[in-house]
Design a binder for these strands. Structure first.
Length: 590
RNA sequence: GCGCUCGUAGCUCAGCUGGAUAGAGCAUCGGACUUCGAAUCCGAGGGGCGGGAGUUCGAAUCUCUCCGAGCGCGCCA
């Protein structure tokens, strides 16, 4: 039950009536106006800009927006759910709803429980790809942000009604995994008792490869020692990638991040009967005249040292909105990352995903245009790719930036942070911020678990609400506190301003879900929960000065029951929102 | 030089896809626990949204242009 969408439809019907009777032009787009809560609560419960939006088109029929507004107000007044409708300001319509409407909303929210606010199932298959960290080492805090954002976004879209698949693209092809293999081979020799000394320049020095080397030694013994690289590279690489992915999956699990599909880049390069998926894609594009051999103009400004003008295999991404055409082949004849990424996105399309979301770090921002261009090209414009960029995270301790250096030993891994402060705090902290805003992640603040961290504020509201139920159970022996029982309470007795404010916020939840999903901004849910928690804490404290406002009142059983129904709804909305964010809703904080 | 993201209160950030007097937390100052959990609450001061121009009935939100920050700029992924 979404009263805003509901009234959007009712007002739309009124406008349609005016169009049918010739009092408005017949071709108005009914999606143009909005119904939202007014900024000032004193203006009423709903506000719509409908008269101002159509003012220009309505010129011949109405001389000004206020005139049209009063006409619509007149029609609205006939609606039994409307207590009052009036024109205000330049032509707003402010609507005050009958108390019954909110009683119904509250009851509906209690009956729906955790399902309250869930959107209708849509048929669209949606693919959300996130994390996709290279399997060459442990994840850092920046990866964590993308992981948390992608995971919460997927939860949000799912709750809003989409059919979501969560996917991880394993970058297990290219030179970097060969470097990984060589690094792991050193650790293998080390595990067999060899003195390997300092890790040579260009290899990964971290200790995290020691277990991989040791595991390899257990599996194959000394059989690879002394062999040329060509004979061991593939074995070691496969083993090392598997070890890194196992580590990454553990780290993700610790952050409560899950994927359904892990897709290997290497599989796209694999040739069956001499042809790989990438070969096929490039050939397709070439057949359509979108691939050619040509020269690229050098970048403006500072030229790279090793720039040489040469002919290469290019994709005409500029025909689909990119700035220049992009290379598909490296000089050594291998495909570029872009080429395999085209084949990867084609795979998603072939698997039925016409709606794709990729979550990337901001350092890949320069890559967005070519990828969206490629998706348009390979799907004939049928598929849509939306790339959400997460700004990189600056790790800070007490306001001072922590310089990270793998070699210097000051590298802070995501896992270390999660183990220290908990997944809930990390997740909420990262979601309490727009994804495209830079984030200073202050270790000291999060580790302190101070009240600076909003996760405790929201969780505390939930725990506090639960404590009311414990209180109620001991005050009223045998009371039935189930949703089904509380929904039967006479909710019309809830008349206090603070109570009504809470009910109105609960009424907004479905709208918040819908808007956040449409904008693909899970942080809105975090902010909404913070506001809801704040309203609840405020109302709670009113009960200090005015005991008659407390939720549990021994003398007034019926009133208490209605208030407990409100608390029930409140806890379920908070728990619902927190579950979208992937944060626990504890019954107590102790 | 070009592209992307961003500039809102002393600090950290929201601002519901263009709406009615720009909000919150922290910090500062002053208050509230024999009372359903004070990890909480109430109050005060503080900005006119980086500068300028434009579109609009109406702009922090859209356009242009400067200034500033971050990221990126064949053959890395």
């Amino acid at each position: 039950m979404n009263i805003f969408a509901d009234f959007q439809a009712r007002i739309g019907a009124i406008v349609q009536g005016l169009m049918d009777s010739g009092r408005l032009p017949a071709d108005l787009d009914l999606a143009r106006f909005t119904v939202e809560p007014p900024r000032e609560a004193s203006h009423g419960d709903l506000a719509t800009n409908v008269a101002m939006v159509y003012a220009r088109d309505a010129k011949p029929h109405f001389s000004n927006p206020r005139q049209m507004a009063s006409e619509i107000c007149f029609a609205l007044a006939a609606d039994p759910d409307v207590a009052q409708a009036e024109t205000a300001g330049p032509g707003f319509i402010n609507i005050r709803l009958a108390p019954k409407v909110f009683v119904d909303v509250l009851r509906a929210s209690i009956e729906a429980g955790g399902e309250y606010g869930r959107g209708a199932r849509t048929a669209t298959k949606m693919n959300v790809e996130y994390v996709s960290a290279n399997p060459t080492g442990p994840m850092h805090v920046g990866h964590g942000r993308g992981a948390v954002f992608g995971d919460a976004l997927a939860n949000l879209l799912d709750f809003a009604g989409a059919d979501v698949t969560r996917e991880y693209y394993i970058n297990d092809a290219g030179a970097q995994v060969d470097v990984l293999a060589r690094s792991a081979f050193l650790r293998y020799r080390e595990a067999l008792g060899e003195h390997i000394g300092a890790i040579p320049e260009g290899l990964y020095p971290g200790d995290y490869l020691k277990p991989a080397g040791a595991a390899l030694a257990r599996e194959v013994g000394a059989s690879l020692l002394g062999k040329p690289e060509g004979e061991w590279l593939e074995t070691v690489r496969t083993q090392a990638i598997a070890a890194m992915m196992a580590m990454i999956r553990e780290d993700l699990a610790a952050l409560k991040v899950e994927h359904q599909v892990f897709f290997s880049e290497r599989s796209l390069h694999k040739r069956v009967h001499g042809v790989s998926d990438i070969d096929r894609q490039v050939a397709d594009l070439r057949a359509r005249g979108l691939v050619y051999e040509g020269r690229l103009p050098p970048p403006k400004g500072q030229l790279p040292d090793d720039w040489e003008d040469r002919e290469q295999t290019l994709f005409r991404s500029s025909e689909y909105g990119d700035d220049v055409d992009r290379p598909l082949m490296k000089s050594d004849g291998a495909y570029t990352y872009f080429a395999s990424d085209i084949a990867y996105h084609k795979s998603k399309i072939d698997r039925g995903f016409l709606e794709m979301i990729d979550v990337w770090g901001a350092d890949h921002g320069g890559y967005v245009k070519r990828m969206t261009a490629a998706v348009k090209a390979i799907s004939d414009g049928k598929a849509n790719l939306d790339v959400r960029l997460c700004q990189l995270v600056r790790l800070v301790r007490d306001g001072v930036e922590v310089k990270m250096s793998k070699r210097g030993g000051t590298f802070v891994t995501l896992r270390e942070v999660v183990d220290e402060v908990g997944a809930d705090a990390v997740r909420f902290m990262m979601l309490f911020r727009k994804n495209d805003a830079m984030l200073d992640f202050d270790l000291a603040k999060v580790i302190e678990q101070s009240k600076d961290n909003p996760v405790f504020y929201v969780q505390y509201a939930h725990a506090r609400a639960k404590s009311i139920f414990r209180q109620a159970a001991s005050t009223f022996a045998g009371i039935d506190l189930s949703g089904a029982a509380l929904a039967q309470a006479d909710l019309a007795v809830l008349r206090d301003e603070g109570e009504l404010e809470l009910i109105k916020m609960i009424a907004q939840y479905p709208r918040q879900i819908e808007a956040a999903a449409q904008a693909r901004e899970p942080h809105r849910i975090a902010f909404f929960l913070h506001e809801l928690a704040s309203a609840f804490h405020s109302h709670w404290n009113r009960g200090k000065d005015s005991p008659q406002l407390r939720f549990v009142n021994e003398e007034r059983g019926d009133l208490s029951k209605a208030r407990l129904a409100l608390v029930f709804s409140l806890t379920s909305v908070i728990a619902s929102g927190l579950s979208i964010l992937g944060v626990a809703a504890p019954d107590e904080m102790r």
